[in-house]
Computed example of a mutant assay.
Amino acid sequence: MTLVRLSGGLDLDTMRTVHTVLDGCLTRQPDALVVDLADTTVRNRLALSVFAATARRAAGWPAVPLVLCAPPPEAASWLAQSTACRVVPVRRDYAEAARAASAAAVPRLRERLEPVAEACRRARELVGDACARWRLPEAAGPASLVLSELVGNVVRHAGTPMQVTLTLRRPYLHLAVADGSGVPARIGSPDPRAEGGRGLMLVRAVAQRWGSAPAGHGKVVWATLPAI
């Protein structure tokens, strides 16, 4: 669980910094994200929409529950009145927020892999283990294909150790691979006669959604598939 303590004034200018910080926390795929507002002065109630935007982004990917805690009385009242912010749970203190976040956490499987040829085989094994544990037999084939391509891209291009994460948040199975290269993953235009270079095209064709986001000094490439 990641805890972020905000301090100072929250307005339409500083909300951009808050959004960047929270977005960076989400790319690390914690089990939950708790934001402590005890030392925050809300100068513009519209700035509270940053939490609703973050919660919606977290729900789509990386399937991380977001909980606010200890808002000052006026901010708590504004959060309760805001239709947009009703998607964000608010608790009285950190202890209550931690319990709520733990209750909302979803199944997640992580493993660190080295950039070697065997990593793709291990990725397929992880998908098989996860889909068996979570009773998703029909998702195993497509998910194995997608995760193998994501891992293979790290082996071929980034050449760094990687963190593989599988998450079940119905109705989707989320797959993510974080590596140490800051070069964004992009779909290229391979030569039709070339044997390789189509990995991300295949990911796009099979996955419901996919994307690439900065994560620390590297990036994380993720994809979601129906959890069936």
Rank of each mutant, 00 (worst) to 15 (best):
59 A>W: 02
153 N>A: 11
224 T>R: 10
148 S>E: 13
149 E>C: 06
188 G>I: 08
75 A>L: 04
45 R>Y: 11
37 L>T: 03
157 H>F: 08
164 V>A: 02
105 A>L: 07
79 L>C: 08
36 D>Q: 01
58 A>Y: 08
56 R>K: 09
205 A>P: 02
42 V>M: 08
6 L>Q: 06
126 L>H: 01
175 L>D: 12
14 T>N: 03
183 V>T: 14
186 R>Q: 14
115 P>M: 10
9 G>A: 11
121 R>G: 14
185 A>C: 13
224 T>C: 12
164 V>Y: 09
125 E>V: 14
9 G>P: 03
19 H>K: 12
146 V>F: 07
80 A>K: 01
149 E>N: 03
51 F>N: 04
24 G>W: 04
228 I>T: 09
160 T>H: 12
211 G>C: 05
64 V>T: 15
185 A>Y: 03
117 A>G: 05
179 D>E: 02
114 E>A: 13
175 L>E: 14
6 L>T: 05
152 G>P: 09
188 G>V: 06
66 L>C: 06
152 G>C: 09
227 A>C: 14
113 L>M: 13
102 S>W: 05
98 A>M: 10
57 R>A: 15
8 G>K: 09
69 C>V: 00
4 V>R: 00
192 P>A: 08
228 I>L: 08
158 A>K: 03
157 H>M: 06
24 G>R: 06
185 A>P: 00
168 L>R: 01
54 T>G: 02
98 A>G: 01
95 A>R: 15
174 H>N: 02
97 A>M: 07
207 A>S: 15
195 E>Y: 03
33 L>R: 01
33 L>C: 04
150 L>F: 06
147 L>V: 10
163 Q>N: 08
74 E>H: 07
157 H>A: 09
221 V>M: 04
28 R>H: 14
45 R>I: 07
63 A>M: 07
226 P>G: 08
159 G>L: 02
19 H>M: 04
137 P>I: 06
102 S>L: 11
115 P>W: 11
87 V>N: 00
53 A>T: 07
44 N>Y: 00
63 A>S: 14
61 W>H: 15
40 T>P: 03
198 R>T: 13
205 A>Y: 05
98 A>H: 13
36 D>M: 00
83 T>D: 10
73 P>A: 11
51 F>Y: 04
88 V>F: 02
203 V>Y: 13
169 R>E: 12
133 R>M: 00
113 L>C: 11
94 Y>M: 01
60 G>I: 02
167 T>R: 13
96 E>G: 10
177 V>Q: 07
118 E>V: 06
41 T>A: 14
91 R>Q: 13
185 A>V: 12
206 V>D: 04
102 S>M: 09
109 L>I: 01
210 W>F: 15
134 W>G: 00
37 L>D: 11
34 V>I: 07
23 D>G: 14
169 R>K: 09
220 V>M: 04
101 A>M: 09
220 V>S: 03
97 A>G: 12
53 A>C: 00
18 V>H: 12
209 R>Y: 07
156 R>C: 06
50 V>M: 07
221 V>K: 03
105 A>D: 03
92 R>Q: 12
158 A>H: 09
197 G>P: 08
179 D>M: 02
97 A>N: 10
20 T>A: 15
158 A>Y: 10
106 V>S: 11
150 L>K: 05
79 L>K: 04
68 L>I: 10
188 G>H: 08
207 A>C: 12
222 W>G: 05
86 R>P: 01
27 T>I: 05
85 C>S: 12
158 A>L: 05
77 S>T: 14
167 T>D: 02
